[in-house]
Design a protein around this nucleic acid. Structure first.
Lengths: 224, 224
DNA sequence: CGATCCTTTGAGCGCAGTCAAGGCGCGTGG
DNA sequence: CCACGCGCCTTGACTGCGCTCAAAGGATCG
């Protein structure tokens, strides 16, 4: 989300909300009357299977819009939960329509947001479906690093990543044990480091090579 | 896509295009000057990994919009290819903006389309990441059946499904051999039949149970 | 200083992948 | 008319990546 968009949405904000780690923000299947933009902190989007298995859809970073599906379709396809303490910008779902009507470009903004999500989900699906565990985890660190750096945090090769190995495992469709051992391989190859809430990317190009991916600069929304 | 939306878009159509089976329609990474709506026939959306592996993102049925990512982001995240002979409604990408500007609801329509795609991709991701092969294939047949029935074709338990087992395998991140054997299990349990281009759903409820999913009616776009 | 949560490591198993070969339907050409 | 090739489906044997079970460190906290 560009700064102008954040700016524009601020006019529709109802207030700010600060939530503690572990707080559910949106529930799968629900039709929340409120939508959010993440201002600080990090979280998780995920779905549950009937047998209790969890699929992490992606990680939530500052700037992410939460509740687009509820706003557009009337029902969330996944849940959102805070992993760290988070502060959220709150909107009323009922005002989304007036937001769109105010300027035709607003609808375009939302469509663009959804399209970006779709694009990323397609890439994730390809990872989970086709990459090996080693490739998938290498890919994930490349994506996460680029995503975090894009929102300003983490200048050099270090980023804050307050998630558990189980979260990454659930994001990639792997077991915790196998994820742990595979991370160990990447560590031993001097490609990454991960201690506590800090991840070190020692060799981005090497990681990208292992992960069968390329490091391209993220594109901004085109002005039509 | 509702009939009114199709109606609305028809005004922006440049013409119709008929393509033969196997024809590439959109290429991953490209910025096609043309966007399409599928009118007849079926196709595939897919991505390729650097090692040549293919992930099928989903199946294209009549009514699907093709090229939304190119229109909104300037670059496709996946390729689209015709599986059968297809007829497409053609639009100019450059007119997308005037289409949106004509009516604020237009932007909403596009955002809604993208959100529906995102919703479905999240469900697919959960399948590939968390369901076993048997559960995944059962889930896939439930989704496909509901999707095909939603666009009018296939009244009773029979639908036209002109895809190969390899296509389904690539959609679920499974090997062809294992997919074949797993389909055999579903056949022997009298849940489905699959001969040539026809799939028979003998027991939708039973399939849904195996696939750890529920058969709920699809929701229409809410009128805000 | 026990309790709890997370990470790490080892052992063994099994689901799904790979390799290989055969069957079947269909179109093509001798 | 039949032989042949080709694409796709089917089946069997074997392999191995990743899962499960289990237990042992560390770190943090009341």
């Amino acid at each position: 989300m560009t700064e102008e968009e954040v700016e524009g949405m601020q006019r529709f904000k109802v207030g700010e909300l600060v939530v503690d780690p572990g707080t559910p923000i949106l529930m799968e299947g629900s039709n929340s009357p409120q939508l959010f933009t993440a201002l600080h902190g990090m979280g998780l989007r995920f779905r549950h299977l009937e047998n209790g298995e969890r699929q992490v859809i992606n990680f939530v970073f500052p700037g992410d819009f939460l509740g687009l599906q509820a706003g557009l379709m009337g029902e969330m396809g996944h849940s959102v939960e805070a992993t760290t303490k988070m502060t959220l910008c709150v909107f009323n779902r009922s005002e989304l329509w007036s937001y769109i009507r105010a300027d035709p470009e607003r609808g375009f903004e939302l469509a663009w947001l959804a399209a970006v999500e779709e694009h990323f989900l397609g890439e994730t699906l390809t990872t989970v479906g086709q990459r090996t565990a080693l490739q998938a985890i290498a890919w994930a660190f490349v994506r996460i690093y680029l995503r975090v750096k894009a929102c300003g945090n983490g200048g050099d090769g270090a980023i804050r990543f307050p998630f558990k190995q189980k979260d990454l495992a659930d994001a990639l469709g792997l077991s915790l044990v196998h994820t742990n051992k595979t991370i160990g391989i990447l560590k031993s190859r001097q490609l990454i480091g991960w201690t506590g809430e800090e991840v070190l990317i020692h060799d981005l190009a090497g990681l990208a090579k292992v992960g069968l991916t390329t490091v391209s600069k993220p594109k901004n929304r085109p002005i039509m």
